[in-house]
Design a protein around this nucleic acid. Structure first.
Length: 508
RNA sequence: GCCGCGUUGGUCAAGGGGUUAAGACGCCUCCCUUUCACGGAGGAAUCACGGGUUCGAUUCCCGUACGUGGUACCA
């Protein structure tokens, strides 16, 4: 292979890692694996005003959890270091200079106030957001309107400036998108984007092009929100003479809110009651923690599977995939063009499917902390293994095991007495008492326990079915759970007798 | 406003000139189960609209509508 595949995920470390971000990681990762390529993680931290403590290591943690580990990253540099744009700062200037020298970019000295004034003055109902473009640039303070001497003087005096790209007029920029096909833009409607900020840092536009080129990136996948600025990037490749090395683009569809419209945001999760971030994110500024998929009880393989199916499909009826299967089957061409609304119910279904398939002993290890957080201490992991096997089909989240399996370890704190109270009577009390007592003399086996209950009930003119539900409620607390006698067997004779006694006490 | 991108059941989606338009989630009914769930059998529910092209459009083309994104010295 002449050009080994190299893809990158380039997040800016400013907060929690969003669902959509993880999906972008996934598609990059899968594409790399599918083609025997390299997956690079590059940190886009050019905006120093948005620096957030801990955000970068948080991203690494999320990637670790999902198993979508980069081949090259700031933690594991490859042949193209550094992997943080802030550390690459010195590399960008020469390209900005080259563009200026070629007449494809220019210095702009306009202050924030002047820019605001321009936008305000030119604002009309028909044009609510005027751009810094071919129509306005000749009215601004820049090296296009100033004489060389003036520019030199300003530069000499240390006047703050930015470098802007000079978009050509009356051209159509075409490029091919792996998902959408041919895309074209009229250069007249794209503005003169800032390339180099006044602090000397590049903007995303310059940095992404320079870094992708320098890091030999062959395929660039990113969210659809980048489509409108793609012509800037294409022009940059052209001006810098790197057209032949330009990566192939793929703009991924957005993940939208389940209700209403718009792209899914953290706020929607709070509002609708589901996570949006991969893992818990503790904002160091507000001290607020936002729940993540991991902490709410998702298995990483389910999270990844669910994300893969949000915007991609194999074309077959299979929906449950392992990462390894996805690595084999993924193709960028089968990614949908349209945005997909996030469906939390379906997400939970994916998790349930993976819980069903997961190994009980692994599950037990993962469930243990949820139990302990709920005050149910687990000393016997082997028992938890068994319990997990018994109740896994009724759990959508790892946290569901607390409710579904907690009673195996701890006497229920409250019983759903209401469910049985109405039909309760003296005979049933006798049945339950006698059955509990019989436990001391009979064999501790499922069928024996059941037979004993049937017989004792019969002696009092009660049908077994009439006491099954009450027995269940006494043992587990409510109308749920596996077979009652399996539960009795698991919790043991003493606990069974005690819970029956306790239940009876609440009924009298 | 302008520009880009999109549009198959409530949601995720397969399909793509001639089909009874898959499947999944959710919902409903029934079976299994003296609980809940799993499992099984059914059910309701879809090609945004208008023009072309064509013998024939859900599929191709053009409009319209709607949605969505962008329009920052944020990414």
């Amino acid at each position: 292979m002449i050009n080994p595949v190299r893809v990158r995920f380039a997040p800016s470390p400013t907060g929690g890692l969003h669902l959509g971000g993880v999906r972008t990681v996934l598609f990059n990762y899968l594409f790399a694996k599918k083609h025997g390529g390299t997956f690079v993680l590059r940190i886009e931290d050019t905006d120093q005003t948005r620096f957030v403590e801990g955000a970068e290591s948080y991203i690494f943690n999320c990637l670790d959890w999902t198993g979508l580990t980069p081949d090259e990253s700031p933690l594991k540099p490859g042949d193209f270091p550094p992997y943080r744009q802030s550390e690459r700062k010195p590399m960008y200037r020469q390209y900005a200079d080259q563009l200026i020298a070629q007449g494809n970019a220019y210095y702009a000295f306009d202050t924030t106030e002047e820019l605001e004034a321009m936008r305000n003055d030119l604002k009309t109902p028909e044009n609510p957001s005027p751009q810094y473009d071919h129509k306005t640039r000749m009215h601004m303070r820049n090296s296009l309107t100033l004489t060389d001497a003036q520019v030199a003087e300003l530069l000499e005096a240390g006047t703050p400036y930015v470098v802007r790209i000079k978009m050509p007029e009356n051209e159509t920029v075409h490029f091919h998108d792996l998902i959408r096909g041919d895309i074209s833009h009229d250069t007249n409607v794209v503005d003169d984007k800032v390339l180099l900020k006044s602090d000397g840092m590049p903007t995303y536009h310059l940095a992404v092009v320079v870094d992708d080129y320098l890091m030999n990136i062959t395929h660039a996948f990113r969210g659809e929100e980048w489509l409108p600025s793609a012509p800037v990037h294409v022009m940059l490749y052209k001006y810098l003479g790197w057209e032949a090395e330009m990566p192939q683009w793929a703009h991924l569809p957005l993940i939208l809110k389940p209700d209403g419209n718009g792209k899914l945001s953290k706020r929607d999760g709070d509002r609708l009651g589901f996570p949006v971030f991969a893992m818990d994110w503790a904002d160091p500024k507000t001290n607020e923690t936002t729940k993540g998929f991991k902490e709410i009880g998702f298995l990483p393989e389910a999270f990844v599977n669910m994300l893969a199916m949000l915007g991609w499909s194999s074309g077959t009826e299979q929906e449950i995939f392992s990462l390894q299967e996805l690595e084999q089957l993924f193709s960028i061409e089968r990614v949908n063009k349209g945005g997909a609304k996030f469906d939390y119910d379906k997400a939970k279904w994916f998790n349930q499917q993976h819980i069903l398939r997961a190994d009980n002993s692994r599950l037990a290890l993962l469930v243990k902390p949820f139990m302990e957080e709920a005050g149910i201490m687990i000393e016997d992991l082997g028992k938890l293994d068994q319990v997990v096997g018994l109740v896994k089909e009724r759990c959508h989240l790892l946290s569901d095991f607390v409710q579904q399996g907690g009673f195996f370890f701890k006497t229920p704190e409250t019983l759903d007495i209401e469910a049985i109270k109405g039909k309760w009577n003296e005979e049933k009390t006798k049945v339950m008492n006698e059955w509990a007592a019989s436990l001391d003399t009979i064999a501790w086996e499922h069928d024996v326990l059941e037979q004993s209950l049937t017989e004792i009930a019969g002696q009092h003119g009660v049908k077994k079915g009439e006491v099954m539900l009450p027995l269940r409620v006494m043992l587990v607390g409510g109308k749920f759970g596996p077979g009652v006698f399996d539960i009795a067997l698991s919790i043991g004779k003493e606990a069974t007798q005690e819970r029956v006694r306790n239940g009876l006490a609440q009924l009298s």
